[in-house]
C-alpha cells in the first residue's frame, strides 16, 4: 500500500532537485556586476517612497479566513462523496442539511458585506 507513494517521493526529489539545480547553475553561469543603483527596488525608474513591505487591505485577510471555513467544508465533503453510493438517501439528506447550513453561512457573510470589494 505504502509502496504506491514511493514514486511520489522520488518525483518530489526530482522536482525540487530540478529547481535547486537551475537556481545554482544560473548563479555560476551569469556575470556578476552589482551596483548600488542596479540593486534598487524596481519602480519604473522612480525612487521608492516609504517602506516597501506595505500594509495591504484587510479584505485579503477576510478572504483567507473565509477560505479556511469553506475549505474545511470541502474536506468534509470529499470522504462523503467517495461512499455516497453506499449511504444512499440517508447520507444525501444528512449532507443536504450540512450544505444548507453552509449556504446560510455564505448568505450571512454576503449580507454582512464581507464579499464586497469597494
Amino acid at each position: 500500500m505504502l509502496l504506491n507513494y514511493f514514486p511520489i517521493a522520488v518525483y518530489l526529489l526530482v522536482a525540487i532537485g530540478f529547481g535547486v539545480l537551475i537556481v545554482w547553475l544560473s548563479t555560476i553561469l551569469g556575470p556578476r556586476n552589482p551596483e548600488r543603483v542596479k540593486l534598487e527596488t524596481y519602480e519604473c525608474g522612480m525612487e521608492t517612497i516609504g517602506p516597501n513591505r506595505i500594509r495591504f487591505a484587510v479584505k485579503f485577510y477576510i478572504i483567507a479566513m473565509l477560505f479556511i471555513v469553506f475549505d474545511i467544508e470541502a474536506v468534509f465533503l470529499f470522504p462523503w462523496a467517495v461512499i455516497f453510493k453506499d449511504l444512499k438517501l440517508f447520507g444525501f439528506i444528512e449532507m443536504g442539511i450540512f450544505i444548507v447550513i453552509l449556504f446560510a453561512g455564505l448568505a450571512y457573510v454576503w449580507r454582512k458585506g464581507a464579499l464586497e470589494w469597494d
Partner: peptide
C-alpha cells in the same frame, strides 16, 4: 540567454 544573464538580488 537566460542562463547567461546577470542575476540581480534586489537590496533589502
Amino acid at each position: 540567454k537566460m542562463f547567461m544573464k546577470e542575476e540581480i538580488t534586489v537590496s533589502g
